[in-house]
Amino acid sequence: MLEVRDIHKTYERRPLLQGVSFSVSTGETVCLLGASGSGKSTLLRIIAGLEQPDQGQVLWDGEDLAAIPVHYRRFGLMFQDYALFPHRSVAENVAFGLRMQGLPREEIRVRVLAALSQVDMESFAARRVTELSGGEQQRVALARALAPRPNLLMLDEPLGALDRTLRTQLLDELRKLLHHSGIPAIYVTHDQEEAFAIADRLVMLHDGRVEQDGSPLEVYARPASAWAARFLGFVNLLSGWVVSLDPLRVETPLGHWLVGDACSGADRSGKPVTLLIKPYGIVPAATRAECNYLEGIVQDVIFRGEDFRVDILAQGMEFQFFVDQPFQVGQMVRLNIDPQAVLCLD
């Protein structure tokens, strides 16, 4: 379906995108995840045809779209702050794309109502868009983007402007709607929770490149890099270097660590690596162990409903773990960590 190939884009003489490639297949929702300023929105605009890449191609069913202007691409784009036409009513906004296709009036009317009922806004058809609340505007913008049945729907931080409760609710509806409609979608966000909730596949952008591309499960189970791990909310990162390969053993300032999950790639002997210690699977230790051992002072204990988050300071480094039983603040703890909970990143 959609294939984005080696896109380069410079913005104000700074490289913004440096060879981004990914694809979206039929019915799939792909989440572009990255920090603000990572070029996500620019990438969307390039796909939509609103901007030209310096280099690279956007292909649809194998055909290069470079020569096809925005208004012939039949991609839907939902703008960050919705860009509803203030001089038109809700229904007229939704009808816009259909009118551009030159459909007969009666069909437009029917499809506008259908699109509005998809987002539960039929009763608002005659309203002015300036009278709508943020959540209502979001729904109308979605209906407007969906009504012409675009080949691809792109959503640029569609929930960014809304408050938290509304976000959770709309996120759910959006997810159902995308999956029901079967329209392939690209969803841009900087919020990993949102991304996990809605994506069939995550594409993480960092420094103008795709850092990682995979299903939410894969990405969470195995972040591709220290940056990806940090961006996904992991805290426990340790740098060290490989001392032996089978089993994989890494030397760090906090002793030696056995890694259950082998590094991908070839020989890493003596190479610097980063260890990610998943926040689960710690066992209190009776004595000092030879490896996979952490000794520190409990800084803070935070109740999270199901379990507790424990912040531990070990040799000046912060670690976070989730445990069933609370620890005492100020307590000295010794922990053994399951090698299966230790990952080796590049």
Partner: peptide, 9 residues
């Protein structure tokens, strides 16, 4: 831009 994406020349 929204108009253009929706198919307006």
């Amino acid at each position: 831009q929204a108009a253009a994406v929706l198919g307006a020349s």
